[in-house]
Amino acid sequence: MISNWSNLVARRDLLRELTLAELRSQSQETRLGWLFWLVDPLIMMLIYWGVVVGLFGRGEQYTPYPVFILCAMLPWKHFTSSVIASAKVLRSRDALIKSIPFPTIVLPLTIVLAGFSNFLFGSVVLFGTAIAFDRPLGISLVQLPALMLLQLVVVGGFSLGVACFGALIRDLTGFLGHLTRIGFYLSPCLYGVDMVKDRFASGSLGGFPFSEWIPTIYMLNPFAILFTGYREALFYGRMLEPELWALLVTEAVILLFGGWRLYQYFDRRVIKFL
């Protein structure tokens, strides 16, 4: 069954059942159950807080650092867990794909949706931390639903593309861990975009060619805008700049459309490689 939009809509029950099954399966694998989805981001936040602030003595301009890091860490975890699992999903479910006609696009989409549910649980920790550290939570919170939707679209687009290539090129799954780690350090997770702007715009890197262009190029990374957006909403209590909204929406649409078309192109071809 071809993974087009009408088939996906017709099989929305399957998408829902698979997502619920994935979440149930995850919670039943652990003793803490769904509580682990709250504990997990808390532990990660404590580790980064301890290392960056406690050990290296950095991040004073981003105080309170727990809120600052959670704003980036939660969407980044959604992204990495989704793309890494999507790269393997078609190979790991090959017996199923060769037995039952169904739009296989539901497999990576299920991973993205289950990861998004984990993200929403983690957001409870983020809100709790923001309240505990007395962040100015006000009208800026209205940005959150749009940011979350755009995050879902961006992660979905990436995951669809990676799912195809993961099935065709087995080596990709081995490299993805390294690629996402590079992405983590190139994105403003541990630091803010202001640091990048200061570094390159002020010319502190000396004769680095086209250094004034680097902050602009840097902001083409959709995660740079997403992290900035969450921080504007929950850390600073401000609105994200309109041009960054426009850029993020454009990138999200291009990524989803590109990922979708790529998946459709490889959809039936991939089966022969499994």
Binding site: A21, S25, Q28, L96, I100
Partner: peptide, 11 residues
């Protein structure tokens, strides 16, 4: 073509 291909062993 095969029975129970979509089963999830944890459920």
């Amino acid at each position: 073509l095969s029975l129970g291909a979509g089963f999830n062993r944890d459920l």
